[in-house]
Every structure is written in structure tokens, then in C-alpha cells.
């Protein structure tokens, strides 16, 4: 039973209309985004399902998951705070921001908070180099940018997500 095909039947139809009929493999990345958005990672099961939907091998889908940094193949925090520490942001204090935020969350870079809600990752340039330090949040609402950040403003976002979690 292909659960992914059932769950995303409508989206799959729309995706297949977007690309030429003989090139359904093009739907792989958008399908991975859908699954990642709903589960905050992509399971082996989902990889098998997607391979079947677009008609390519499981290995090909798994290699796509492994290649791109926004796809994760194991569960971590529900929300990923991805902090840019590239050159322009580093010149605006991004390395110090990363360390201080991790200290405030009592984790190491790459780690996940005890409540399982937040994972902090160090990432490459996010194309907002005039507004550092900054991070993006990858979660169930897709991806959102948080620019010109301080530890206080970032912890405010953490707090809001924790509150939101309580009500769900």
C-alpha cells in the first residue's frame, strides 16, 4: 500500500501536470518537500513510496535526499533553526550568535533541545547578507527567514513555538 500516493493524490496530479508526461522524475523534489514538511524528515518508507510513484529506483530517490541539505533522512527537532555563518554574516557576528544561541538552548551546534522541538544547524549562505546575523526556520509551515537577530529575539521565536506546541 503506497501511503504517500494516497495522502498526496491531489498534489501528485498537479505536479504531474507541471512536467512533460515522460519526465515524471521531475516530481521527485517537490514530493520530498511535501513529505519533509509534514514529518520534519523523510523516512525509508516514504523514499520507497516516492520511487514507486515516479517510476525510478529507491536508490535514485535516496541519493537525492542525501545530496540536498534541506532534506533529512532521520528525525531530529520538529523545527530546524538554520543559522548562516558564511563570510558576510560572520563579519556581522554570526559565529558568536550561533555559540550564544546554542548556549541559551543548552545544546551544541547540530544538537536538539531536550523537548525535541528545536535543532540548531549551521548552514551556508542564505542570500540575505545585509541582514545578519540571521537564520531560517524549517518546519511544518515551510521555511521562514528571521533577519537581524539577537539571542533574545531568537529565544522569543523559540518561546512562541513552544507555546504553539502546547496548544496543539
Amino acid at each position: 500500500m503506497n501511503q504517500t500516493a494516497i495522502k498526496y493524490a491531489r498534489e501528485i496530479e498537479a505536479l504531474f501536470a507541471k512536467y512533460p508526461e515522460e519526465h515524471r522524475q521531475s516530481a521527485v523534489m517537490p514530493l520530498l518537500h511535501l513529505v519533509h514538511q509534514d514529518n520534519s524528515f523523510i523516512s525509508k518508507h516514504a523514499i520507497n513510496d516516492i520511487a514507486e510513484i515516479v517510476g525510478i529506483s529507491t536508490t535514485e530517490v535516496a541519493s537525492v535526499v542525501g545530496f540536498y541539505t534541506l532534506y533529512h533522512d532521520h528525525p531530529e527537532g520538529k523545527y530546524r533553526f538554520q543559522i548562516c555563518t558564511d563570510l558576510s554574516c560572520a563579519l556581522q557576528g554570526a559565529d558568536e550568535f550561533l555559540r550564544a544561541l546554542c548556549a541559551a538552548l543548552e545544546i551544541d551546534p547540530g544538537g536538539t533541545t531536550k523537548d525535541g522541538l528545536i535543532t540548531v544547524e549551521e548552514v551556508m549562505c542564505l542570500a540575505a547578507c545585509d541582514k545578519g546575523p540571521l537564520f531560517q526556520v524549517q518546519g511544518k509551515d515551510g521555511i521562514s527567514y528571521h533577519e537581524r537577530q539577537t539571542v533574545e529575539s531568537a529565544m522569543q521565536t523559540v518561546q512562541e513555538l513552544r507555546e504553539q506546541e502546547k496548544h496543539e
Binding site: K18, Y19, S26, H33, T69, L70, Y71, V123, M124
Partner: peptide, 10 residues
């Protein structure tokens, strides 16, 4: 015109 999203790769 169609959009296509990448997934993090310079």
C-alpha cells in the same frame, strides 16, 4: 510558467 524549488545546493 512553472516554479521548481531546489533543496539547498549552491
Amino acid at each position: 510558467i512553472h516554479t521548481h524549488l531546489g533543496a539547498g545546493a549552491y
